[in-house]
Protein backbone atom coordinates (compact mmCIF):
# COMPACT_ATOMS: atom_id res chain seq x y z
CA UNK A 1 0.00 0.00 0.00
CA UNK A 2 2.92 2.38 0.47
CA UNK A 3 5.08 2.54 -2.62
CA UNK A 4 8.50 4.12 -2.44
CA UNK A 5 7.26 7.41 -3.87
CA UNK A 6 4.89 7.94 -0.95
CA UNK A 7 7.37 7.31 1.85
CA UNK A 8 8.15 10.35 3.95
CA UNK A 9 11.91 10.84 3.74
CA UNK A 10 14.22 10.38 6.71
CA UNK A 11 16.37 13.28 7.95
CA UNK A 12 19.33 13.37 10.31
CA UNK A 13 19.23 16.13 12.90
CA UNK A 14 22.25 18.09 14.17
CA UNK A 15 22.04 20.57 17.02
CA UNK A 16 24.50 23.15 18.28
CA UNK A 17 24.11 23.39 22.05
CA UNK A 18 25.48 26.95 22.11
CA UNK A 19 27.69 29.26 20.12
CA UNK A 20 31.31 28.13 20.04
CA UNK A 21 30.45 24.42 19.82
CA UNK A 22 30.00 22.09 16.85
CA UNK A 23 26.61 20.96 15.67
CA UNK A 24 26.22 17.39 16.94
CA UNK A 25 24.15 14.55 15.63
CA UNK A 26 21.19 13.97 17.97
CA UNK A 27 18.89 11.66 16.04
CA UNK A 28 16.62 11.45 13.06
CA UNK A 29 13.04 12.02 11.99
CA UNK A 30 10.69 11.77 9.01
CA UNK A 31 9.48 14.86 7.19
CA UNK A 32 8.23 15.71 3.71
CA UNK A 33 10.68 18.59 3.18
CA UNK A 34 13.40 20.60 4.89
CA UNK A 35 11.03 23.21 6.33
CA UNK A 36 8.93 20.56 8.03
CA UNK A 37 12.05 18.67 9.09
CA UNK A 38 13.36 21.79 10.85
CA UNK A 39 10.00 22.38 12.50
CA UNK A 40 9.77 18.80 13.75
CA UNK A 41 13.40 18.80 14.87
CA UNK A 42 12.63 21.84 16.99
CA UNK A 43 9.63 20.08 18.55
CA UNK A 44 11.23 16.68 19.02
CA UNK A 45 14.82 17.50 19.95
CA UNK A 46 14.84 20.91 21.65
CA UNK A 47 12.10 20.81 24.26
CA UNK A 48 14.51 21.62 27.07
CA UNK A 49 16.92 24.20 25.74
CA UNK A 50 19.21 21.69 24.02
CA UNK A 51 20.47 24.18 21.48
CA UNK A 52 20.29 27.39 19.52
CA UNK A 53 20.78 26.11 15.98
CA UNK A 54 19.55 23.09 14.01
CA UNK A 55 20.81 21.44 10.82
CA UNK A 56 18.84 18.77 9.04
CA UNK A 57 20.16 16.66 6.19
CA UNK A 58 18.46 13.91 4.25
CA UNK A 59 19.76 10.57 5.49
CA UNK A 60 20.03 9.36 1.90
CA UNK A 61 22.57 12.15 1.22
CA UNK A 62 25.00 10.83 3.81
CA UNK A 63 27.83 8.63 2.56
CA UNK A 64 29.16 6.37 5.30
CA UNK A 65 32.29 4.28 5.56
CA UNK A 66 31.77 0.54 5.46
CA UNK A 67 32.04 -1.01 8.94
CA UNK A 68 33.58 -4.15 7.47
CA UNK A 69 36.52 -1.97 6.38
CA UNK A 70 36.93 -0.46 9.83
CA UNK A 71 40.19 -2.34 10.39
CA UNK A 72 42.03 -1.44 7.17
CA UNK A 73 40.65 2.10 7.40
CA UNK A 74 41.46 3.01 10.93
CA UNK A 75 43.91 0.57 12.43
CA UNK A 76 46.97 1.91 10.58
CA UNK A 77 46.65 5.03 12.73
CA UNK A 78 47.32 2.96 15.85
CA UNK A 79 50.97 2.19 15.06
CA UNK A 80 51.92 5.71 13.97
CA UNK A 81 52.97 6.76 17.40
CA UNK A 82 55.37 9.31 15.87
CA UNK A 83 52.29 11.45 15.24
CA UNK A 84 52.02 12.05 18.96
CA UNK A 85 54.18 14.47 20.97
CA UNK A 86 55.25 11.83 23.53
CA UNK A 87 57.18 9.97 20.80
CA UNK A 88 59.95 12.61 20.91
CA UNK A 89 62.45 12.77 23.78
CA UNK A 90 63.22 16.29 24.83
CA UNK A 91 65.37 16.80 27.94
CA UNK A 92 63.64 18.38 30.96
CA UNK A 93 66.15 21.25 30.92
CA UNK A 94 64.55 22.52 27.73
CA UNK A 95 61.39 23.21 29.67
CA UNK A 96 57.83 22.90 28.52
CA UNK A 97 57.47 22.28 24.80
Amino acid sequence: MTDKHDLTPLWEVFIRPRNGLHHRHVGSLHAADSALALQSARDVYTRRGEGNSIWVVRSSDIAASDPSFAEPNFEPADDKIYRHPTFYDIPDEVGHM
Binding site: T8, A32, D33
Partner: peptide, 12 residues
Protein backbone atom coordinates in the same frame (compact mmCIF):
# COMPACT_ATOMS: atom_id res chain seq x y z
CA UNK B 1 0.75 13.84 5.11
CA UNK B 2 -0.39 13.71 1.49
CA UNK B 3 -0.46 17.50 1.16
CA UNK B 4 3.02 17.85 2.70
CA UNK B 5 4.47 15.28 0.29
CA UNK B 6 2.68 16.82 -2.71
CA UNK B 7 3.99 20.25 -1.75
CA UNK B 8 7.53 18.90 -1.34
CA UNK B 9 7.38 17.23 -4.75
CA UNK B 10 6.09 20.37 -6.43
CA UNK B 11 8.85 22.47 -4.92
CA UNK B 12 11.50 19.91 -5.83
Amino acid sequence: REAALAHARKRA
